[in-house]
Nucleic acid binder design. Structure first.
Lengths: 155, 155
DNA sequence: GCTGGAAACTACGCGGGTGTAAGACGCTAC
DNA sequence: GTAGCGTCTTACACCCGCGTAGTTTCCAGC
């Protein structure tokens, strides 16, 4: 499969953020394009589908009122510990630790939770991304293949 | 029962926030002392036990990485819609709406949730507050009575 | 090789949420 | 009444997360 990538402005549109946000996040190492990074004025960033998933997760967390600072911690933690298919799980943030859960596990986490738990169902994230991509680029129906794994692992 | 109240500095210590935070929150109408409000330089704010619960909830949400702006929305919503005993329930924040749940309801909320859910078990909040109060003022063991209702209602 | 457009870069500014420091005020004790 | 202490108040400054605007660079099309 051809590595289908997205420019900065395209990525921003797909995940519904401003270009300035995307740019700021790239400069401050929150999410850099894993396709091609910027190499100076006039160069082009290339975001992969997997990047879009991360960006959308961030956008959802922001919309939920989570501070960007905390989101940075979450992703730092995730990049270290998490790497599996997340589509059917829930992302659970408790303080500085992050877990992926489904079903009974999730309930268990809730019963024992002492602090605030931030919970994001990941299935919705993938669906949303796919919808927006099709809207923006109907040619990319080849995305039906599931080759591209989302980038997180269960801890 | 004597309406036992707490000064600004005492309240700040009990909920483990800085005085500047407490002051800022009072000035910007997030949490004002329901005992006595400030009436100028040298006056004294009087916070009730119920106020302490609210402050502690805010502190926990902040620690979980929630933006103060969102917390303002949450409390605006709660003051309108919520008014029951929260000690045994979970505070669930989904976007701009807030609910109190326990057991099966909570699970249902999770299964149908599309956005991020912020979940705070309230039992821990009350316990934490009580512990810190006893630490600060061992004389107040009269707080064993449950006369003071927490200030939120189920929606 | 020139030109136009799209993207990345830079500079500047702003508002929110505090921290620090110092001043103003009321109350209690003497 | 005045000295001291605990508070509230005010002023100032800082950093983060962008928005706005203008500039620079690359690339495509001619």
């Amino acid at each position: 499969m051809k590595h289908e990538t997205f420019s900065g402005t395209q990525a921003a549109k797909v995940v519904a953020i401003s270009y300035r946000q995307l740019d700021y996040w790239a400069r401050t190492d929150l999410v850099r394009p894993s396709g091609t990074d910027a190499t100076g004025s006039g160069s082009r960033r290339e975001y992969t589908y997997r990047d879009l998933l991360e960006l959308k997760v961030i956008k959802n967390l922001l919309d939920a009122g989570i501070k960007l600072e905390s989101i940075r911690d979450v992703f730092a933690y995730m990049r270290e510990h998490v790497d599996t298919d997340i589509s059917s799980a829930h992302l659970v943030i408790s303080g500085s630790s992050v877990v992926l859960c489904n079903g009974e596990e999730l309930i268990d986490v809730l019963r024992h939770g002492q602090g605030v738990l931030n919970i994001l169902p990941m299935s919705g994230v993938r669906d949303e991304i796919d919808r927006h991509i099709i809207e923006l680029r109907p040619d990319l129906l080849s995305l039906q293949d599931k080759q591209e794994k989302p980038g997180f692992k269960a801890v």
